[in-house]
């Protein structure tokens, strides 16, 4: 149900964004038709693999995005330093399994994606409660191992 509400809001918005025609009867009818078809496909996928959205999450996510953007900027600066000044900032690639505390699939996906989105760390494989991470430097991995990001994502997900 949450999926239906979400898609009935986002799909028309996306269509209007792409077309840019807001007052053309024929085109709006075609748009409505394509929204219905796309939502139909989405519903079939949703029935196979439910994602279980929580409305509270949508409210918490903007703050998380702001924090994540800050992290991305910091991580970028770190990697750029390692690219241009390899002598002063040598790379030391490491690979390690990290514990993750998210319960839902969506939470794990957000955590793994956040890890990968910050350059310097890539989530390679996600299992039940561990994530295999490749990091460009030991320091980047240590930052991640403190579990700050992990806690934030778990809070975002909302405890069961």
């Amino acid at each position: 149900m949450a999926y239906l509400i979400l898609s009935s809001l986002t799909l028309p918005a996306f269509w209007l964004l792409l077309s840019g025609f807001w007052d053309h009867g024929l085109l709006l009818a075609f748009g409505a038709l394509s929204v219905v078809i796309a939502a139909g496909f989405g519903l079939r996928m949703e029935r196979l693999e439910p994602t279980c959205y929580r409305p509270a999450m949508l409210l918490r996510i903007p703050a998380y995005w702001v924090w994540l953007t800050g992290e991305i900027v910091k991580a970028n600066i770190d990697v750029v330093k390692r690219i241009w000044w390899p002598q002063e900032h040598p790379i030391s690639p490491t690979m390690q399994r990290l514990h993750c505390t998210q319960q839902t699939l969506l939470g794990k996906t957000i955590y793994a994606n956040s890890i990968t989105l910050t350059p310097g760390t890539v989530a390679i494989e996600v299992s039940d409660n561990e994530i295999l991470v490749h990091a460009l430097s030991g320091a980047a991995l240590q930052d991640l191992a403190t579990g700050d990001m992990d806690r934030r994502v778990t809070r975002l997900e909302g405890a069961r």
């Binding site: 690219i83 790379i91 989105l117």
Partner: peptide, 28 residues
Amino acid sequence: LGISGGVGVHRFPDFYSRVHAAGVTDTL
């Protein structure tokens, strides 16, 4: 940043570290 990533893709020794350099061009 893009050029840094492009240079990094050539400077880093193996595939896995190159992913990080490509990440710079894709994100910031």
